[in-house]
């Protein structure tokens, strides 16, 4: 049986204050963030502005600044902050036993052609 949550490995793989990428075959790459105080979030790795790779931005608080044009994106909601308007999809994430789990259906949701389960 296919589990509801997808295990993507121990949280220690991500240094606090950084992000790492999770490519999804046939779908959109996901950025998994860990903030300085240890919270983790996952977003589609595309800025709503010009699709910049958010995973490469500077993380401060629960915000990432896109490396292309400095839009600030909330890690919690995916919304652009300040005067900028736009939103990037978030992927539900939970931590269990020091490992990061992403909601499978959200990870696969953005696949171009849905696969048969």
């Amino acid at each position: 049986m296919i589990g509801k949550w997808l295990d993507i490995g121990p949280v220690t793989q991500i240094e606090p204050g950084t992000a790492r990428t999770l490519p999804v075959e046939g779908g959109e790459e996901i950025a998994v963030f860990r903030t300085m105080n240890g919270d983790c979030y996952a977003l589609v790795n595309k800025c709503p502005h010009k699709q910049g790779p958010l995973s490469q931005g500077i993380v401060h608080g629960a915000v990432v600044t896109c490396p292309l044009h400095n839009w600030n994106i909330s890690l919690m909601t995916g919304e652009a902050l300040g005067d900028d308007k736009g939103c990037v999809p978030t992927i539900p994430l939970k931590m269990d036993g020091g490992r990061i789990f992403l909601l499978r259906e959200a990870v696969l949701a953005r696949q171009a052609a849905p696969q048969a389960a």
Binding site: I8, V24, E25, G26, G27, R104, Q115
Partner: peptide, 16 residues
Amino acid sequence: ADLHAHIAQVRPLQME
């Protein structure tokens, strides 16, 4: 290496 490599990869057909 963590700055360059992906944390993991998702391939739907061999997900399990």
